[in-house]
Design a binder for these strands. Structure first.
Length: 685
DNA sequence: GTACTCTGCGCC
DNA sequence: AAACGGCGCAGAGTAC
């Protein structure tokens, strides 16, 4: 019979767990176990295993004998909340220090993974509260235990007997929470369990970081920003250029109103063309007359060195394992519809490089070699502003191991392809499948222009009508999920008039992809019907049903999207008035947003986006299994991109394309896939 | 001090 | 006639 063991370590260390992650934490020499609490089959007694006792050898205790037996029994499954932590402590301390047998990956279960799959909060306290589980938390005991796990003010770990006794007293509380959560949430279904097991292999494999390069990059940044920081302080009186509000207030006092300090805003104000397609180039001098030189200089410094991304360098140093690989960078199902999210150094939001050498991104090795000198002057001479150069080279910190290469593949424009395929907009998909530039197609539709024919004409058009193409691209990518003209203007076209934005949105909905709004409406209707009647409803291959406190949407691949606590509501439409009210049936659900558990309105565009993201993730996960089988072990996934680290002999871009293209689900849904690949020693975009 | 929220900013 | 995409992290600011 399968037995379940819920377990929870309390530990102490000089290493900061949130800063460094479980892998680095567990292998640090200062990390020690205070106790391990565990409970068998939900109702049994809670045992506490400890490495030290008053009078007896820990090996002689009942807890130890029971635990040792459980570990070697292949029918026992170990359950933890955020199991990556318990697994790491087990692997790096329990086995080597206390002589327990290793526990293979297949014998672990993670209650956090189930919470993630069902779109619930991951944090155990909030999760218990939201689920209404009646576990009273001993707040004092909890904060005391937390305090004891870190060095005190004098820089020591407190090991006094009364303190430890207090921790032991408190410990069973988390076990009760975990057991209750497990009883409520249950197991992962087989398909999801396979994905989670894959996730664990990827997280434990980690990704190699070039520590020498990281050190050099930090040196470049430090040496370049120091004089600039002083100058900034002199000009503005603000000690740090990270103080956004103060800087804005200072600018205002100097007579310059700055709406925000975002990259693009700053570029516009300073009139620096960052991407070669500055949106507001009608009047390039609009800001100049009102911008005093010292304000310009202060903002310029902020632009030069204000990038927050370089903090990734510090994070890399603190979370890299002793063997030079960073682990635990991905959270399984971190986003509602199944996507992985990034952790620690957040490998999913590396800035895209802005450096250009002869109009192209520089060769990673050349850039790295320059930065390796640690000398900002060398970098400046070869590539331009040193901090910008380091930011552009941040991705290159990720490298392949000896004898291996990085091999990356990404699904080009997959979001647009999936939404068009689900909606049945086959004409546009046909264009995409034939390799046409649909952004140009949409632009021609918006601006009523003649479509260019022939390779040369297209290339010329692209060059001559860059702005029109950008509008086309934004529309194709952004308007598939019911974005209105207001948001479109805010996000992509602040320089354009309302009428223009209205026309773009109208063109997308009425002319370019008229099937897509039908998809929004159908999903909305099916979901509302399900929530209001309690009976399942299907639309466009997606089946909504109520399931034990959630509304689920089952996709054609059998995967599900979960919405917690769906409630029927009535909602006034935006155009509803007193005289002509338009109140319709709708529904809400609950979700964690910006750390808070809130109620949100469901609407067709959102349901469509969730559906599309789920399908994308399914296609990606499917491909990841095949890549692993073909000798291309995954190290990262960035939503539509798979980064693998095969042996040099197995690194074959054509093979990768083929493996990623070979998707049962894409065939079933008639989604034409296009895969772009590259191989190299360093990560890049 | 610690916990939390808000803003900014990076990605898909 | 038509709306609110998904994330994580750093730092500042605020509340206790």
């Amino acid at each position: 019979m399968i037995r379940e063991v819920v377990l929870d370590f309390e530990t102490a260390s000089f290493v900061d767990l949130t800063e460094s992650g479980a892998a680095r934490y567990s292998e640090d020499a200062s990390t020690e176990i205070l106790c391990l609490n565990f409970q068998v089959n939900r109702t049994g007694p809670i045992y506490s295993w400890r490495p030290t006792y008053q009078d007896e050898d820990y090996r002689e205790t009942v807890a130890h004998r029971i635990l040792a037996d459980l570990v070697v029994d292949p029918d026992v499954i170990f359950i933890a909340h955020s199991a990556g932590f318990e697994k790491a402590i087990w692997r790096n301390i329990m086995v080597p220090v206390y002589g327990f047998a290793p526990i293979p990956g297949r014998r672990w279960h993670d209650t956090m993974a189930v919470a993630a799959m069902k779109a619930m909060p991951l944090d155990l306290d909030l999760l218990s509260r939201v689920l209404g589980l009646d576990v009273t938390k001993d707040m004092e005991g909890s904060s005391f235990t937390k305090k004891l796990s870190r060095p005190n003010r004098r820089g020591e770990l407190d090991r006094s007997k009364p303190s430890l006794e207090r921790v032991y007293d408190y410990c069973s509380v988390d076990i009760r929470s975990q057991t209750a959560v497990h009883a409520r949430l249950g197991w992962l279904p087989p398909m999801e369990r396979d994905i989670w097991l894959l996730d664990q292999r990827i997280n434990e494999r980690g990704v190699r970081l070039d520590l020498g390069y990281i050190r050099a990059a930090k040196s470049v940044v430090d040496r370049a920003s120091e004089p600039l920081g002083h100058e900034f302080h002199r000009i503005t009186g603000i000690p740090k250029f990270t103080q956004v509000q103060k800087l804005r207030e200072w600018c205002a006092a100097e007579g310059v109103i700055v709406p925000d300090l975002q990259k693009e805003t700053l570029a516009r104000i300073l009139n620096v063309d960052i991407d070669g397609d500055l949106e507001d180039d009608d009047d390039p001098f609009s800001y100049r007359p009102t911008l005093p030189d010292h304000v310009r200089r202060a903002l310029y410094i902020r632009q030069l060195v204000g990038s927050a991304s370089i903090k990734k360098l510090d994070r890399m140093q603190s979370c890299v394992s002793l063997d030079g690989r960073a682990r635990g960078l991905l959270q399984y199902h971190g986003a509602g519809p199944g996507r992985w999210t990034g952790r620690l150094l957040q490998p999913q939001n590396f800035p895209r490089g802005t450096l250009k050498v002869d109009g192209e991104a520089p060769d990673p090795e050349l850039l790295v070699n320059a930065i390796m000198t640690g000398d900002p002057d060398v970098v400046e001479m070869l590539f331009g502003p040193p901090v910008e150069a380091v930011v552009s080279g941040l991705r290159h910190t990720i490298v392949a191991d000896q004898g291996r290469v990085l091999l990356s593949g990404d699904y080009a424009g997959i979001q647009a392809r999936v939404v068009l395929a689900l909606a049945g907009q086959w004409d546009k998909l046909g264009l995409m499948a034939a390799g046409a530039d649909v952004y140009i197609d949409m632009a021609c539709e918006i601006f009523k222009m003649e479509r260019p024919v022939g390779k040369e004409a297209i290339s010329r058009w692209k060059h001559e009508h860059m702005r029109e193409r950008q509008s086309g691209k934004n529309s194709v990518l952004g308007l598939g999920f019911q974005m209105g003209w207001w948001k479109f203007q805010l996000k992509y076209a602040q320089a354009e008039a309302e009428a223009f934005c209205r026309r773009v949105v109208e063109t997308y909905r009425k002319e370019w992809a008229p099937e897509v709004p039908k998809l929004w409406a159908a999903l909305e209707r099916a979901a509302v019907e399900t929530v209001w009647t309690g009976r399942p409803h299907e639309a466009y291959g997606l089946e909504y049903r109520l399931e034990d406190g959630w509304l689920t949407a089952t996709t054609p691949s059998g995967s599900k999207i979960w919405y917690y606590n769906p409630k029927p509501t009535r909602k006034a439409m935006p155009w509803s008035t007193e005289e002509e009210p338009d109140i319709r049936a709708a529904w809400t659900y609950q979700v964690k947003k910006q750390g808070r558990w809130i109620t949100v309105d469901a609407y067709g565009g959102l349901l469509t986006e969730n559906y599309v993201m789920r399908i994308e993730t399914d296609i990606m996960a499917e491909a990841m299994f095949r890549l692993e089988r073909e000798g291309m072990p995954l190290v990262l996934t960035v939503h539509d991109e798979a980064l693998t680290e095969p042996l040099i002999a197995r690194a074959d871009e054509a093979m990768m394309k083929q493996v990623m293209a070979d998707s049962r689900l894409a065939r079933q849904l008639k989604i034409p896939l296009q895969i772009d690949t590259w191989a190299g020693d360093r990560y890049k975009k």
